[in-house]
């Protein structure tokens, strides 16, 4: 039933796409994290001028499919001549950066929601104690709220990392040859979707299993302290 020889044959070819999947995941997570921190603060802010835009951003990116967001950035940007003649086009012309921008902004919305919740859960007493010790607001955030909040958000954030890796599979819809892109290429060549996609699935499982283990180790080390 299952053609193992074929699976062994396509394995090295699919492996060529793993590097791309890794690069995409890393840059998306980085962009999402950088955007998520200020967003989380804005979300928790008392001033509506900060919280309303942040809430709208989070609602938009959590309320629409990631595929639509990728198409909006990729094909949407290409539609307008003024964008095509601007500096931004050097980045937006490249499908690689389009995917990082779209999924990075998407991931930022989820992570911001997560961080904002974790920061709200830092107990008032701890914050008041820090202030009473004479710490400035900035020092309180940096040395008290952040470490506590990020630590408690870590298990949920680990999940976010895994979801991001899987979301990079959308890359193949805009011509990027990631793991899924290589798999779809091999399917077109061999007409054996079952064996090829199963091999790709096995590689994804291996990556996420390894990563889950590593993140568990990290959680154990961070949380016991």
């Amino acid at each position: 039933m299952l053609d193992f020889d074929l699976m062994m044959e396509v394995l090295p070819k699919l492996w060529q796409g793993v590097g791309m999947t890794g690069r995409l995941s890393l840059l998306i997570l980085l962009l999402a994290f950088v955007l998520a921190l200020p967003l989380a603060f804005a979300r928790n802010a008392k001033h509506r001028i900060l919280s309303v835009p942040a809430n709208a951003y989070i609602l938009f990116f959590r309320g629409t499919p990631a595929l639509i967001q990728v198409f909006l950035v990729y094909y949407g940007a290409g539609q307008f001549p003024w964008i095509r003649s601007s500096m931004a086009w050097t980045i937006l012309r490249d499908p690689f950066w389009c995917l990082i921008i779209a999924l990075g902004m998407n991931g930022a919305a989820y992570s911001a929601e997560l961080f904002a919740g974790a920061m709200r859960n830092v107990s008032r007493g701890v914050i008041e104690a820090a202030r009473a010790l004479g710490l400035s607001w900035y020092a309180t955030v940096r040395t008290v709220i952040f470490p506590i909040a990020l630590r408690s958000a870590l298990p949920a954030y680990s999940n976010e990392i895994i979801l991001t890796i899987k979301a990079t599979s959308l890359a193949s819809t805009i011509t990027i040859m990631d793991l899924t892109g290589m798999a779809r290429l091999e399917v077109a060549r061999t007409y054996a979707p079952y064996e090829v996609f199963l091999t790709a699935a096995a590689i994804y499982v291996a990556i996420t299993a390894l990563l889950t283990q590593a993140l568990k180790q990290l959680e154990r080390r961070v949380i016991t302290h």
């Binding site: 094909y75 290409g78 539609q79 095509r84 012309r93 819809t173 011509t175 892109g181």
Partner: peptide, 15 residues
């Protein structure tokens, strides 16, 4: 490589 011929056309138009 694209999913549809119309996707190829869009990217030809956008250079």
């Amino acid at each position: 490589v694209y999913d549809k011929t119309t996707d190829v056309e869009l990217d030809l138009l956008s250079d």
